[in-house]
Design a protein around this nucleic acid. Structure first.
Lengths: 363, 363
DNA sequence: GCGATTTGGTAAATCGTTTCAGTAAATCGT
DNA sequence: ACGATTTACTGAAACGATTTACCAAATCGC
């Protein structure tokens, strides 16, 4: 893909690029040693003062001021690499996600970013497209780069590492891993209850891809909620997303399968908003209107949900907050190196957001 | 936002957490020195062999095998931090984007990621929400972290650094910065021509936010294309996105303003797909159907465009490829430290994607 | 006035790698 | 058989910070 673009390069080389410019190339940053030399002090003193070390209390404030002043005018910035090597702390974490190109990951990431930057951490993101060997590869690179912890999003995590790991929407019981998870039982209940309240008795379901870590638990919760409300879900009314395509197309295909099998349903519970959008497309194409003929309910409440036409009724996951929480718990783990008294699970609550894609069943 | 989630923590502490566990905490990784010691060789030799240095040719293959074997069984992984410090190469770049939570950035990022990982680079992403002081702050951190280059996306870039910079959708003439840009003239032409071909003569336009770097050039190209096709755009038919909200809401608001001003138009050219979606919502709410009453054309061709209802006719930007290209040119610049014979502009071509949101004008 | 403490610093080790400059033994050319 | 190479390595100096251990001079307590 990267190699197939069509472009027209316009090679205007700079007019003013005299040979002089090469002398300016890559000016070296000023180091602690430089700074110390310019002050006629030792690097030790300067370091102590700049870092506000307790020892620095014996340095007269006059000298301290000189040091700060010089640091400012020379634009001294401590080299993070050197510092990390010495202190064995990189202030960096690794984030492993399925792919970047979707509302779900983006929302989680924005939460992660907010929290991490606030705490002075940076992060590497890599996506694995649900391929096991890529996950392994990336994890090795994370370790090589000395990340202090790993955050995995919607990713099976059976790899034991010595690093703190927090998993968002993961359901593996790997010990030592904190899971940030939705209260799925409640989510299933909210969804099914809403449809039942609207009079629906024949509910179809689109399950997630087999590789998605929420698939199984969400399906179970929907099944048990349906049983509880006495609207059992017919086997023929269950479809499943297939493939890694992050667009609504997978939902479109799954819904077409339902229709081709003549599944009878008045409501459709999709695995997520993206697939719900694809489902609506498929329904419309066969002449079924949403919500008049079929109610569709999504999951996640990504940005697209609110402004879709019709706007999606959905079970909201607080994705950004889950990202925040993930980052928060990871940093906690990193902070305390002794304890393993960390929660295995941190549970966040879903919320039913009623919009236009669901309506009362037709009599 | 990060502080306002409602959660219920379940603190199941591990049953098997004996005091023993603290002895396992954070096992140290095996270093080159460890590896060398276990082989009874010097670190020098081991390093030379593992890195395939030319000097290593004098080391007998038997020894080399021993080294590789030991490295494998001890799971030796070179410490990237130490290596970076010594070699003064971090194989890391910094990416500066407005925000992560949108189709545009995500698509660009996925291209960037693909290219960079392929070349053994990692990257830091940070978002600046169009705030100048945040940009400055992040740039300083990038320098501290010794990134080898900076990629800015849809971000004004007037800051001189000694680092290689490539700008995606940037239009500042900062010298030394390579811009990856769309052929906007062509884009404007494609959009207006399409509408004109459908018989539209009254075209409304939603301009981008003032801070978005494509806003001005896109508006100019549309205006000149409209002039060329003799369908001048009335001043009252021009609206503008306001605020940093990355959802369709800004487009919704901009369109409502048009409607409230009683602007007369049969076609609407939105700044991007996201705002086009908001525009459709606003039009529908006042009883105008898309495309029967008003044709709407978007820009970008983000994932959401194809599956929206109606699906969006749009001017496609090859976003992922732009990300790839940006990464590619940045790596080129990083690779050659002497040259400034790099292009100022790399131009990619837009493409008209006709879907359902545009139609022939009603007679 | 003399030992103890405080003041104002510095030298050197360290983090884990790479790499320049050797070096001692074996081999080669003639 | 003797200098020149080649073979098989190693020592030590970087990279740019932090940190421990020290030191000399000044001041304090009594």
């Amino acid at each position: 893909m990267c190699d197939t673009y069509q472009t027209s390069d316009i090679m205007k080389t700079k007019g003013d690029s005299s040979d002089f410019s090469k002398f300016l190339a890559r000016p070296k940053a000023v180091s602690l040693k430089d700074l110390a030399a310019s002050l006629k002090l030792s690097p030790t003193t300067v370091s102590l003062v700049l870092n506000g070390a307790p020892t620095a209390s014996s340095i007269p404030s006059e000298t301290q001021d000189r040091i700060f002043e010089a640091a400012r005018t020379l634009k001294y910035r401590p080299n993070h690499i050197a510092r990390a090597l010495r202190a064995q702390r990189t202030h960096t974490i690794g984030v492993l996600i399925p792919e970047i190109s979707e509302g779900y990951s983006a929302a989680v990431l924005s939460g992660v970013e907010e929290k991490l930057l606030k705490e002075g951490y940076f992060y590497f993101v890599v996506s694995h497209w649900h391929r096991e060997e890529i996950i392994e590869h990336h994890l090795r690179f994370f370790i090589e780069r000395c990340v202090e912890g790993i955050l995995v999003v919607d990713t099976p995590q059976q790899h034991q590492t010595f690093l703190p790991v927090v998993s968002i929407s993961g359901h593996d019981d790997t010990k030592g891993v904190t899971n940030i998870v939705l209260n799925h039982e409640q989510a299933g209940l909210l969804a099914v209850e809403h449809l039942v309240n609207l009079g629906h008795k024949k509910i179809a379901v689109i399950k997630g891809q087999t590789f998605s870590s929420d698939t199984e638990i969400r399906w179970q919760s929907v099944k048990s909620a349906a049983a509880r409300f006495k609207v059992p879900i017919a086997k023929s009314s269950v479809s499943q997303l297939v493939g890694t395509n992050p667009t609504p197309e997978t939902g479109y295909i799954a819904t077409r399968k339902l229709l081709e099998n003549n599944a009878e349903f008045t409501a459709l519970l999709a695995f997520n908003d993206i697939s719900a959008i694809g489902a609506i497309r498929a329904l419309n194409e066969t002449g079924l209107k949403v919500p008049e003929d079929v109610s569709v309910i999504g999951f996640d409440d990504v940005y697209a949900a609110e402004f879709h036409n019709p706007s999606l009724t959905t079970i909201r996951q607080p994705l950004k907050e889950m990202g925040c929480l993930g980052a928060e718990y990871l940093l906690k783990r990193i902070g305390e190196n002794d304890g393993d008294d960390f929660p295995d699970d941190v549970i966040v609550e879903p919320e039913l957001v009623i919009r236009q894609s669901t309506a009362e069943v037709k009599k």
